[in-house]
Amino acid sequence: MFEARLAQGALLKKVVEAIKDLIEDANFDCNSSGFSLQAMDSSHVSLVALSLRADGFEHYRCDRNVSMGMKLASLSKILKCANGDDAITMKSEDNGDTITFMFESPEQERLSEFDLKLMDIDSEHLGIPDNEYDATVKLPAAEFQRIVKDLSTIGDTVEISVTKDAVKFGTTGDIGNANIMCRQNKAADKPDESTEIDINEAVSLTFALRYLNSFAKATPLSTHAVLKLSKELPILVEYHIPEVGRLAFYLAPKIED
């Protein structure tokens, strides 16, 4: 059987809210090392990779590897019934056709159980090469969210250019153009506001803002978003979930003909 208890149930709520508009349904894979998901959006332009480590759960048991297909909209409906401070336990019998979500309030005066029907989903598992990236930018998650939101009011795509000291986000649209530059800033007294750039080679790539805006829904999960870029490769946008795991998004670039 599979059973996992997350004391901070809100994390699971935030993860599902972050991905439910990007992917319709997905297989959640559970094994002894943790709970994970890999899924592409319906246009096969982006890929979501979630991994929650077994040791990030208060209690974790997985007797055999299981893959549980769920419709994200249904999962979201159920998790919306959990309070933000509830602990969430997921349970499923081997070969079961449902997964049970149990919500416990902090004083345990309220216990609720919701069963979600599992689905058979044919999904393609992609091999993600373990690249060394040309540039890594770690910036406050809220700042990244604001940049992609603001630029979306002007254009559809963003050119992200990283140099040694700064990262520049630029867009062009019918009404004009916009550029936002963030300089490296390792403020030791305000670590949550730091912007750090680690670069092997200057890089500049263009991406669809619509997807980056969707990825930014993961902002509540982490203080920082980490962007990893290499020439002519998908961008990796990572949100580290402290002590539990990470939610990562890959987006294929726009390429000149």
Binding site: M40, H44, V45, S46, L47, E124, H125, L126, G127, I128, P129, T157, T206, A208, L233, P234, Y250, L251, A252, P253, K254, I255, E256, D257
Partner: peptide
């Protein structure tokens, strides 16, 4: 204009 690449062009089936 720039064309949107597919993610499967970069990451093969495993």
């Amino acid at each position: 204009a720039a064309q949107q690449a597919s993610i499967t062009a970069f990451f093969g089936a495993s």
